[in-house]
Computed example of a mutant assay.
Amino acid sequence: MTVRVFVEPIDQGWAVRACQVENGMFYRTGAEAEAAARDLCQRLADAGEPAVLEIKLRGGARAGRFLFPPDPAAPLIGGFDGPRPAPTPKHPARLGPYRSSSAA
């Protein structure tokens, strides 16, 4: 499941909130909040969880949206300890010429 992380302005600073995290983090500057949010997203991705970071400006407009894909070598978080299935190719035509297994 993709973890969504938000950096949002609050009255006296900036907040970092995540959907699956109960306690938010609060910072005086937007730069501090963004650095903490990026670090959180990268740690989640390194652990195998995809993350999306959304940063909002004081006026409510979106300043940026960043995707942190999971590390394919990382174990999955959340209970499955077995090996990951091999990724399926996105472009099968690039795998080489087709060879039939049946004899002609």
Rank of each mutant, 00 (worst) to 15 (best):
M1A: 14
M1P: 07
V3A: 07
R4K: 12
F6Q: 01
V7N: 00
E8W: 06
P9W: 01
I10S: 03
D11Y: 00
Q12M: 11
A15P: 01
A15G: 06
V16I: 02
R17Q: 13
C19A: 15
C19M: 13
C19S: 15
C19D: 12
Q20W: 08
N23D: 13
F26Q: 06
E32P: 01
E34S: 02
E34L: 09
A35N: 10
A36H: 07
A36Q: 01
A37S: 05
D39M: 07
D39F: 12
D39S: 11
D39V: 07
L40M: 02
C41K: 03
C41P: 04
R43S: 14
A45R: 01
D46E: 06
P50D: 00
P50W: 02
A51I: 08
A51V: 02
V52I: 08
V52D: 04
L53A: 05
L53K: 01
L53Y: 00
L53C: 07
E54A: 11
R58F: 11
G60F: 03
G60P: 05
G60A: 09
A61M: 11
A61R: 15
R62Y: 03
A63E: 10
A63L: 08
G64I: 06
F66T: 09
F66W: 05
F66A: 03
L67G: 10
F68H: 00
P72N: 01
P72H: 02
A73C: 08
P75T: 09
P75K: 06
P75M: 08
L76Y: 03
G79H: 06
G82C: 09
G82P: 08
P83M: 10
R84F: 04
A86G: 04
P87G: 03
P87I: 07
P89C: 04
K90V: 13
H91N: 13
H91I: 15
H91Q: 14
H91G: 10
P92M: 07
A93Y: 04
A93M: 10
R94K: 12
L95R: 12
P97W: 00
Y98Q: 07
Y98S: 11
R99T: 13
S100W: 15
S100I: 10
S101A: 15
S102C: 05
A104T: 10
A104W: 11
